[in-house]
Design a protein around this nucleic acid. Sequence first.
RNA 1: GGAGAUGUAUCGAAGUGGUCAUAACGGGGCGCACUCGAAAUGCGUUAGCCCUCCGGGGCUCGUGGGUUCGAAUCCCACCAUCUCCGCCA
Length: 429
Amino acid sequence: MLDIKLLRTEPDIVRENIKKKFQDEKLPLVDEVIALDKEYREAKQKAEGLRNRRNVVSKEIGMLMGQGKKDEAMAKKTEVTDMAAELEALSVKETELEEEIRKRMLVIPNIIDPSVPIGKDDSENVENERFGEPVVPDFEIPYHVDIMEKLDGIELDPARDTSGNGFYYLKGDIARLHSACLSYARDFMIDRGFTYYIPPYMIRSSVVTGVMSFAEMENMMYKIEGEDLYLIGTSEHSMIGKFIDSIIDEDKLPQTLTSYSPCFRKEVGAHGIEERGVYRIHQFEKQEMIVVCKPEDSMKWYDILWKNTVDYFRSLDIPVRTLECCSGDLADLKVKSCDVEAWSPRQKKYFEVGSCSNLGDAQARRLKIRIKGPNGTYLAHTLNNTCVAPPRMLIAFLENNLNEDGSIRIPEALRPYMGGKSVIEVPNK
RNA sequence: GGAGAUGUAUCGAAGUGGUCAUAACGGGGCGCACUCGAAAUGCGUUAGCCCUCCGGGGCUCGUGGGUUCGAAUCCCACCAUCUCCGCCA
């Protein structure tokens, strides 16, 4: 969410930004907000004038009552009663206008960073940099489910019976590999100075509506029946939620956190949920990074965050690239964002395994996350990034570390988490 | 899950319908004075948000409603904490 003062003083910047994001249909909102805001402030001033009068008179009534001057007090009462209706009407108008303004402010996109490439949609995202050689071996790479099944590491049919499509049983060494990736990611991030968190996996509706839009909530979140609780779609929800309406001492910054959680997503209308396998599923696990920092540091942290993910994947011998989100594909709250994509030798292309975002002060403004410094309080900047989401990254892991005989090589870094194993062998039947 | 108690600034806490909400009283922090320095002492200071014609004004006593001319105070709902009982990993 933008600062409304920016719309008052520099509406052209806001309009220009909307155009850059190819959301011209939102252009009228700028003038609407400016007009509503003017009306709102007039109503507010009038209402506050009346409230002031009421407070003063009520105090006088109190004094008169204290002195036993009942008649004079009664006369004053009438004065307050007379303006009650006007005040009530103004209050309602005030609230209504405020809501109308907020409704519009929520959909006016955040000002993007000047470095963001201009483009209409995801087809115009820009490859930034490649890390590692994208190798295609001279033998055929099977579909990830087939690799896993050959290793006796996945059971999809029973999962369909117990839970439906979009769930899975991981088994044996593949399940262990999944957990190893997470444990390794946890230690990897701790080594880089991040504080490890295990957050609540369910959050109240008031937090949900704070951290996402209504449409997102409908399409992503599972609700617990009979309770005011939702299963989190990512640990970012609980991690950012804990900062809602808080003021952080400047010397406690930056907050660099890494959180583990299972993630639950309905994936309503999402492409690929029907696909067999673990690419898009209703339940997965993820190690996440969250940073809350001073405004001047956020771009520095943005670079540190995505590089962490790149380093993590490179330490597992998986080639990756970073793909920068163009203006039109950037979510409204984000200033800048890139995906980390892993190489798939089977598809001979890169696919998304993580997403790094700098939200500037937009999320902080919406959630009232502030910093207290020597010169007053100001809004924080917030960032988040995926370290690893194993079910999906296993696809890249298995494809890139597959031997011709179907066994899987375990990179050095992961061996301590796999009981020292250097290879996952194909079981003899 | 049952019973009871509680929620006021940085902390403890007073206020139980008005003329004591920046909020008594006490502690902590910070600044200044005294001191070679420190302790002790004294003085001062120590929320956030919004509007502003920059004079000021409004809102916030866990949160949201209600009653009232007026609510920290009365009523309702929710949230949280503590104690006891039950249950559980």
